[in-house]
Design a protein around this nucleic acid. Structure first.
Length: 583
DNA sequence: TATATAACTTAGGATAGCTTAA
DNA sequence: TTAAGCTATCCTAAGTTATATA
């Protein structure tokens, strides 16, 4: 009940803010009274935008099997094109990808095709691939006018399908396009990579909107799977995808009221954790000594989640997805215990694949009680056995929500990310620094969070080159600076005899120094960022009010840290945050 | 109580398109 | 003016969590 009350108070606060934000007077916007769980009262939209239908290959582009031209049926040809388009990609060399593709491709073939085409290695997609490359090339080389026309056509689609009416607001939709068919590209060693992701028809699509709205019209000759009017959910359109059998949704853009409010709530829960975290930590440290195995496992898991910002780690169905784990699903093989390592005692070495098959590797000194428990958990287990065999995310989250309303495993990630940013910003930035230095500090604080959350990226392909280019610029600037300095010296000497120094030359030296510093700072920033992605934490874990307050305090324009999309998403924070905000 | 499912957030890679330097 | 390089945006996969179902 308390949580509901809290929620309602927040909703009222939010409405007050949003009235201002939307630049509407309170009278114009009759305050919505939402029942619990009601997401909207009125929802109208145009339905999804479908990808264009398949365009058959021109007659001069051939597919060959075993060296002979084969004219494929339309369905088989479309799938062949999917494969041909990916030929430059590493995917198409992987055995699993090729096998899955070939199996699904054969399903699309006619009887005759199927009996002829039995070996993928005998297929020659060369001409189709070349055609595709030529097409992308041609697109790149379009004239200004053609590009402009294309842009306008796209804008027209956005104007028509990209917005909806939700209660009193025209809101942008996040993804209004139905996903086009193609070959499934999973991450890492995905058992389903290469399978055919089928074309979605209107008959597969569920529409969600108000009863009294103008119901979206299906494409000519088609009908929707269902039209429903469920205002307890936020999606406008959904369909079932054929690879995993899971649902896909069309939902609002991040700048919408619905999403913004949810985001705000997320950070409010994390702030609440801030005020409770001491007690909660004390509790799980006590629990390390519990007589109950479940409780001790839960305590160790919480220790990891809190200290290392690990994800909850749901169980996954084997063979359906790549083999990745989070905290609760860690297996014996993923950790190594060291009584002594690099001068530290009780070190746990983690090595596992997390979400998106991103490797988590870390050597962490832990407290003795945790170490002792871990040793116990490992007893009589095989490498493939679960470390926390009595624990799952359900048990863990049930416990957490009993400690604090709204508390779940992922709140710790949000909390620790945001509090780390705030602390780091305090520690790293000086008011007297120039903007470039302040931004380096900001990025370093952001980077500390990204490292904590293990947000990695593949080093950009052009990284080495781009670093070299930057270094060349720095060298050139250094030379220029040296030159400017000698000129100034010379001028000063002459000034002694003539009596006036040269302010122009002094300014030139100063400008040169500033530019050099800026370049050097940029180089440092880029080098440190080689394998680290800052965007994910910025967008999903860092309370934007921390950044907004920092910008105000440091007199850094908000545009320096948030691009247009980010400013739109965080409009609420930019609008409501004072310089003294504390997370 | 276990398992499945729905709904929603979080995630990195691909690509479009803008900026900058040659 | 053009191409290279970089950033923003798009895309959709892969998580988490709450709830429904067996």
């Amino acid at each position: 009940r308390l949580a509901v009350k809290l929620h309602k108070t927040r909703a009222a606060l939010w409405n007050e803010y949003f009235n201002n934000y939307a630049n509407m007077s309170a009278e114009m916007w009759e305050e919505e009274k939402y029942e619990d769980g009601m997401k909207w009262k009125f929802l109208e939209h145009k339905g999804p935008y479908f990808p264009p239908e398949y365009q058959p290959l021109p007659d001069n582009v051939h597919f060959y099997y075993n060296g002979k031209t084969v004219k494929l049926s339309l369905a088989a040809e479309e799938v062949a094109v999917f494969f041909a388009q990916m030929l430059d990609h590493e995917y198409t060399t992987k055995v699993v990808f090729r096998e899955n593709f070939f199996k699904d491709w054969r399903k699309e073939m006619t009887h005759e095709e199927r009996s002829l085409i039995q070996d993928l290695d005998k297929c020659d997609f060369g001409e189709i691939h070349a055609m595709h490359k030529a097409k992308t090339e041609a697109r790149k080389n379009m004239s200004k006018e053609e590009k402009q026309a294309l842009k306008e056509a796209n804008q027209k689609i956005v104007d028509e399908y990209g917005y909806c009416l939700l209660d009193h607001h025209k809101e942008r939709i996040g993804n209004f396009k139905i996903e086009p068919p193609g070959l499934f590209r999973g991450r890492g060693e995905h058992p389903k990579q290469g399978m055919l992701k089928k074309r979605i028809q209107p008959e597969d699509v569920i529409i969600n909107c108000s009863k009294d709205s103008r119901i979206p019209v299906p494409p000519a000759g088609h009908h929707w799977k269902e039209v429903r009017h469920d205002n307890s959910v936020t999606w406008l359109v959904s369909w079932t995808e054929n690879i995993q059998g899971s649902n896909k949704y069309i939902m609002l853009n991040a700048n919408s009221k619905l999403k913004g409010e949810k985001d705000w709530e997320k950070y409010e829960v994390a702030r609440k954790l801030k005020s409770r975290v001491d007690d909660i930590r004390y509790q799980y440290l006590q629990d390390l000594k519990s007589k109950q195995m479940v409780t001790r496992q839960r305590a160790v898991a919480l220790y990891f989640i809190d200290k290392l910002a690990l994800r909850a780690g749901n169980e996954k169905e084997e063979g359906e997805t790549a083999d990745t784990v989070g905290c609760c699903s860690l297996r014996v093989e993923h950790i190594t215990l060291h009584e002594q390592l690099d001068g530290n005692e009780c070190v746990v070495e983690f090595d596992f694949l997390g979400k998106d098959c991103i490797r988590y590797y870390n050597k962490v000194p832990v407290i003795k009680k945790v170490f002792k428990n871990l040793k116990l958990f490992l007893e009589n287990k095989q490498p493939g056995d679960e470390l926390f065999d009595r624990l799952n995310t359900n048990v863990l989250n049930k416990h957490l929500s009993s400690l604090m309303p709204g508390l779940t495993a992922k709140v710790f990630r949000t909390y620790n990310a945001s509090i780390t940013l705030q602390q780091q910003l305090k520690e790293l930035t000086n008011k007297s620094d120039n903007v470039a230095e302040k931004l380096l500090s900001y990025n370093r604080a952001n980077r500390a969070v990204a490292i904590l959350c293990n947000h990695q990226r593949a080093p950009p392909k052009t990284f080495e080159q781009s670093m070299a280019n930057l270094q060349a610029k720095i060298d050139a600037r250094k030379e220029q600076l040296a030159l400017a300095k000698t000129e100034l010296k010379q001028a000063k000497k002459e000034a002694k005899t003539k009596g006036n120094s040269d302010p122009k030359l002094q300014a030139a030296v100063k400008r040169c120094e500033e530019q050099l510093l800026k370049l050097e700072v940029q180089a440092t920033d880029r080098e440190e960022n080689k394998q680290i992605a800052l965007g994910t934490s910025k967008l999903n874990y860092l309370d934007p009010r921390i950044s907004v307050a920092w910008c105000k305090n440091m007199e850094v324009p908000i545009e320096k840290i948030y691009n247009k999309t980010q400013r739109e998403k965080f409009a609420w924070a930019i609008d409501m945050t004072e310089a003294d905000f504390e997370f």
